[in-house]
Design a protein around this nucleic acid. Structure first.
Lengths: 211, 211
DNA sequence: AATTGTGAACCTCTTCACAGCT
DNA sequence: AGCTGTGAAGAGGTTCACAATT
């Protein structure tokens, strides 16, 4: 099915949430769930769940609900999770190392195949069986490993250069952990992952909203 | 100034972005910036910047723009960043260790003072000078270190228990790295940090939107 | 001339409410 | 009776456009 409607980022993120809810339900041998069940697990409304799914098709049965295993496989397909994605990681520091070992990526088919760092002391050494490569060899290795997604975990001051390198090497999707807004061409997708922004919003609420 | 208007999460997150833009401007010895300058750096509109700031007061001068250093200190105060926040971290695994070393927290006054893990082999050992404590001693240590924010970096299956522990220990703000929607009382603030959700939204776009 | 601050218009996302299916 | 799918209504967030100020 072609996706025509303008979909919000929020809808896509919620699909990921629904998928986890379904996985947990399946572990508990639950065969069928209602939109209300999914909603309660995620602190949202049942109408939101149904509306989100309706953008992509009709997956449920009126009066009965959704078959857990069918809906899981539908959402997996929608999110492009029924395949392997080869991932490069630029910046093998503390955060980078944690991400290399992170099961949450590997479990979903995101396999880190290429490590890049500009520190001469790191280049040539191995982390988790992968040799750290020099930025100047990036275009070569991006092609060799058929990289489609790049994770940036360098300091803020180097993030734009890292993004430029990934894009020059043919990569169109970036997950950025540096606290910088990257400037990229319109055909490149960027997701910002910002631990600092989130903790700052907590301090804002603690400071201003005496609950 | 009392904050009465219903503020969106998005506005708060953008304040963090503006603060970083201002810091970068200051490093370049820029004294004054326009809303357009801040907007361009963050890929948003100038009207959005002005509207966001207007919720909190009038920080600029018509015809001139915003004084960098004044606006920095105003936003810092708004976000509650003009002080130290004592932070506990539950779950000293790969992600946890990276967060303990993460400069982005410390630089902003978020100081990790307490480490908790339920692995008997870890309890009593030290990481970055901090002794890992047992969950059963949490209430005691939360009080002793005056913890106001808890970072959860345990596996998904243990995240709710970790949140319950933090809340029982008197903590009202949680930064959650586990891919689970936490159920908490209405007076507790939770921010979800989900690396997996973000990379999945990249695979969605790569799969569906041939740009 | 440049730029802010802001009410109003606009647009997008969420919720409602109910017809339609099981 | 129970629950989905969805058009319409409602709420919320963003952009416009311009008066006010330097």
């Amino acid at each position: 099915m072609a996706i025509e409607t303008r979909l919000s980022d929020a809808t896509i993120r919620r699909l990921s949430m629904y998928l986890r809810t379904l996985e947990m339900a399946q572990k508990q041998k639950i065969r069928t769930v209602s939109s209300q069940y999914i909603a309660t697990e995620n602190n949202i409304t049942a109408a939101q769940v149904r509306k989100d799914l309706s953008y992509f098709g009709a997956f449920g049965r009126r009066g009965l609900g959704y078959n857990v295993s069918n809906l899981m496989s539908s959402i997996s397909k929608l999110l492009g999770l029924n395949r392997i994605w080869n991932v490069a990681l630029i910046g093998v520091g503390n955060i980078g190392r944690a991400l290399i070992a992170y099961e949450g990526f590997r479990n979903r088919g995101f396999i880190i195949k290429l490590l890049i760092d500009n520190d001469p002391n790191k280049i040539g050494t191995k982390v988790n069986g992968l040799t750290i490569q020099s930025p100047k060899d990036a275009p070569l290795f991006f092609k060799e490993f058929d990289i489609t997604i790049t994770i940036i975990s360098v300091p803020a001051s180097e993030a734009q250069a890292a993004a430029d390198l990934a894009i020059q090497s043919g990569c169109r999707a970036i997950l950025n952990f540096a606290p910088v807004t990257l400037q990229v061409p319109p055909n490149v997708f960027v997701r910002q992952e910002n631990m600092a922004y989130e903790i700052e919003s907590l301090s804002f609420f603690l400071t201003n909203k005496k609950a």
